[in-house]
Amino acid sequence: MPEARGKPRAAVPVETADLRLIRIFLRVVEAGGLSAAQSDLNLALSSISEKIAALEARFGLKLCKRGRGGFSLTPAGEDFYKEAQRLVATMEQFSTRIAGLSSQLPRNLTLGIVDTIITDPLCPVAGAVALFAERAPSVHLEVITLPPGELLREVIGQKIDLAVGSFPRAVLGLDYLDLHDEPHHLYCAQGHPLFNVPDHDIGIDTVREHRIIARSYWAARDIRIFAIAAPHATVANIEAEAHLILSGAYLGHLPAHFAAQFAGRLRPLRPDLLSYAAHFQIAARQDWQDRAAIRCFIEALQQTSRDLMRR
């Protein structure tokens, strides 16, 4: 496909379909290649390649080199990238202004989140709230905290507009948009019999001899690895679990960022064997792209999440 640098040609009107292709192109460039952008775009590699090819055909430009040699922009692609950035920025500014004027925007937006994520350095909620307040200043924001399963039920029931959390099971009728992973370790506290036992002397059989906590929404995951019939205690949120662990009588999983505030009082047991990553996502009804306020907040979450992971 010939590059059009320096050759005047008829202006190509930008259509709605072009904007989606342009946004995909921007994500690919920002990620550093097609493969790196897959998880962010939630598209197959072949689909991303087809969309980039469609964008090149649409504007008559060779935008990038891709293949075994890696990904790189052509000179025309570098210019196109800069212009695309300006276009998207202008559109976002327009959307921000219209958000404050449009009577179609709802007066309220309800966000549901799981508990104790405020200490997670990759949690995008605070940054997204700041962006949303700027872009949709007339919308009243309500935030509620519930366990993951209840959040999904509330989204399905249209009692909340979107949810952020790690969801043990998917509910049909919702879209799930990836954010980040949250490491969890199995902890014991000072006073527990295992607190001073070296890791090399601790195995699953050893742990099984002690009281184990399960979260009501993740009970199967929490006890499956230990092959026990039932947990010795059940909690509905992370803070309740921390209380039991800090008693020195129980073992349980906690997010690493949350447990860090109890350094010296808590100890992770066999991270190589007993740790896992909780995958955080946005859950929203499948028509979220047609709802301006929800779309605005989801885009703010995604933008903030990308920025945090680049730091």
Rank of each mutant, 00 (worst) to 15 (best):
P2S: 13
P2Q: 13
E3T: 13
E3C: 10
A4M: 06
A4C: 02
R20D: 14
I22Y: 03
E30D: 14
E30S: 14
G32I: 05
A36S: 15
A37W: 07
D40V: 13
S46I: 06
I52S: 04
A53N: 09
A54G: 07
K62H: 14
C64N: 08
C64P: 00
F71R: 13
L73P: 13
P75K: 04
G77Q: 04
D79E: 14
K82T: 13
A84K: 08
A84R: 07
T90C: 05
E92Y: 01
Q93Y: 07
F94V: 06
S95Y: 09
T96F: 01
I98Y: 12
L101A: 09
L101F: 10
S102F: 05
P106L: 11
L109T: 06
L109E: 06
I113K: 11
D115I: 02
I117T: 14
I118R: 09
T119D: 13
C123N: 15
V129S: 02
L131D: 10
F132A: 03
E134V: 12
R135E: 15
A136I: 10
S138L: 12
V143P: 06
V143W: 00
T145F: 09
P147F: 07
L151P: 04
E154R: 15
V155F: 05
K159S: 09
G165E: 04
S166N: 05
F167N: 07
R169Q: 10
V171T: 05
G173Y: 10
L177Q: 04
L177P: 00
H180F: 15
E182N: 09
H184V: 12
L186F: 13
Y187H: 05
Y187G: 03
Y187V: 01
N196E: 08
N196I: 00
R211C: 09
I212R: 08
W218Y: 09
I225E: 10
I225K: 13
T234G: 02
V235H: 08
N237C: 12
E239W: 02
E241C: 15
E241F: 07
G248K: 08
G252R: 10
P255E: 07
A256P: 01
A263H: 11
P268A: 09
P268N: 04
R270K: 06
L273S: 14
R285L: 11
D287A: 07
W288H: 07
F297Y: 04
F297A: 01
I298C: 07
T304D: 04
S305I: 01
R306K: 09
R310T: 10
